[in-house]
Design a protein around this nucleic acid. Structure first.
Lengths: 167, 167
DNA sequence: TATTGTTATACTCTATAACTATA
DNA sequence: TATAGTTATAGAGTATAACAATA
């Protein structure tokens, strides 16, 4: 199996599978398998969203704003695991593109309440169709039950995995 | 529940869970769950390997060299999903630290065959003990069966997920 | 004194183009 | 003409420190 139409230098890529390489303990390491799977899925996401110029983090912010209008920056960024300091330019971009909006808060003159604009809501509707196709591609590989099982296991890994913690 | 001894600015962190935020479709998106789980596991990896100054990619290279002595750079980098161009400085570091070695190949004067040095092999033995503890932490959360199931599902997601592909 | 948002900055990862020396 | 390794570089993503305005 080596029927690959490969471009020489530009696409970089591989020298091909050769004789199958032994990954040793990596092949049963959760972190390694998680990384490979995450990269695979994100590559597909990037490819599909390139035309809309939307990245995973941006998409996740739009979703949170849709489902929780009026949240503050710290709340959104913390919920998504984004440092508030990195959240600023991310939101700047969304605001400049007319997709999200910062509004002044009455009780607290330091804070901003975040909202989706109509354009942001409209875009998100389109994005959801793309996401559905993206998700379907991978559900086709593991089945609906497989997905449910996988989500359950991943959640158990993540929850209470606050980072700075026990052993 | 807000009994957090928080340092003010430096640790950044959160404003705390507040009223529980609705992640919308994100909560059932494979890519999102995969990313959160991968970050959780990698954070633990980083914390444990900080003292040895070894990163995940470096560890993975050492493992491949151990189990496949004599491979060329392209082979190792492709097997691990690292661009050959980024592999060069990675290997430079390992070589400078005396952990890995480039040897000239007889039949091909362009290529290098890669090997672990005795120091690299010794270090890897120590690293494996750390990895075992790291892995055990997460297996404790999902059980041995859970791990087996998870690895199976992740492999099905990843394999044949070459990136540039169908729909 | 703590918090919200911000700026500036640095470091790691990843990606592309182009080169060399061999094949 | 293609391949192995390399260099240079640019762009994300992520991290820390420090500040202003406000609580």
């Amino acid at each position: 199996m080596t029927m690959i139409t490969r471009t020489p230098d530009d696409l970089d890529e591989m020298s091909e599978a050769d004789a199958a390489i032994d990954l040793g303990p990596l092949s049963t390491l959760l972190g390694y398998a998680l990384r490979r799977a995450q990269v695979t899925v994100f590559n597909d996401f990037h490819r599909r969203f390139a035309a809309e110029d939307i990245r995973p983090a941006q998409y996740s912010v739009l979703q949170v704003l849709k489902h929780n209008p009026g949240l503050r920056q710290v709340q959104v960024s913390f919920a998504l695991g984004i440092k508030r300091t990195n959240f600023v330019p991310l939101l700047d971009t969304l605001e400049q593109r007319g997709l999200a909006e910062r509004r002044k808060v009455v009780g607290d003159r330091r804070a901003f309440a975040l909202f989706l604009t109509p354009a942001g809501a409209a875009l998100l509707d389109r994005l959801d169709a793309i996401v559905a196709a993206h998700e379907a591609k991978f559900v086709a590989r593991i089945g609906a039950e497989g997905k449910a099982t996988l989500l359950g296991l991943l959640t158990r890994l993540t929850d209470r995995g606050c980072d700075t913690e026990d052993d």
